[in-house]
Computed example of a mutant assay.
Amino acid sequence: MCLICGWIYDEGTGDPDHGIAPGTMWRDLPVNWACPECGARKEDFEMVQI
């Protein structure tokens, strides 16, 4: 979950609008990937249980 805006990355959905295929694990996201809602970096995310 993004600590800036609250957007949640769902590994099952991915981020296809930004080239991240469904099923892409969090650990496999590129280092330069950013939150599609606010542009926050990966280090601005916190793992949450859904």
Rank of each mutant, 00 (worst) to 15 (best):
P22F: 09
G14C: 06
I4S: 07
I4C: 03
A21V: 07
Y9W: 03
T13D: 09
E46G: 01
C5T: 07
A40K: 04
M1A: 15
E46Y: 03
I20E: 00
P22R: 09
G14E: 04
V31A: 15
T24H: 11
F45P: 00
R41I: 01
I4K: 09
R41V: 04
A21S: 12
P16V: 01
R27N: 14
A40C: 08
G23H: 06
P30Y: 03
A21Y: 08
C38M: 10
D10E: 09
V48E: 12
D10V: 01
E11T: 09
K42P: 05
K42M: 10
T24I: 11
R27D: 15
V48D: 05
M1Y: 11
W33K: 05
H18N: 14
D17C: 00
G6W: 07
M47C: 06
A21C: 04
G23Y: 04
C5D: 04
D28A: 15
D10K: 06
C38Y: 09
D17N: 06
A40R: 05
E11W: 05
G14R: 06
V31D: 15
D28E: 15
L3I: 06
V31W: 10
D15L: 01
A34F: 06
Y9F: 13
I50Y: 14
F45N: 02
E46F: 01
G39P: 08
C2H: 00
V48W: 13
V48N: 05
W33R: 10
T24F: 12
R41G: 06
L29D: 00
F45R: 02
E37I: 14
C38D: 14
W26E: 05
D44P: 01
W33S: 04
W7K: 04
G14W: 02
V31G: 09
G12V: 00
R41H: 08
W33H: 08
R41Q: 08
C38R: 11
I50N: 11
Q49S: 15
G12R: 09
G19K: 07
N32Y: 11
V48M: 13
F45E: 00
V48C: 08
G6V: 07
G12S: 05
G19V: 04
E43A: 07
N32E: 14
D44H: 13
H18T: 08
G6D: 08
E37R: 13
E11K: 06
L29R: 06
W33G: 03
P22W: 08
G23I: 02
I4Q: 07
H18P: 02
E43T: 11
E37W: 10
D15T: 00
A34L: 12
P36L: 12
M47Q: 14
D28F: 14
M1T: 08
C35L: 13
G23Q: 05
Q49N: 14
D28Y: 14
T13R: 14
C5I: 05
P36N: 11
Q49L: 14
M1V: 06
A40M: 06
G39T: 07
L3F: 04
E43R: 13
T13C: 05
V31Q: 15
P36T: 10
M25G: 13
V48P: 00
K42W: 01
G19H: 06
C5V: 04
H18M: 08
G23D: 02
F45G: 01
P22D: 09
E46W: 02
N32P: 00
W7T: 00
G39C: 10
E46D: 02
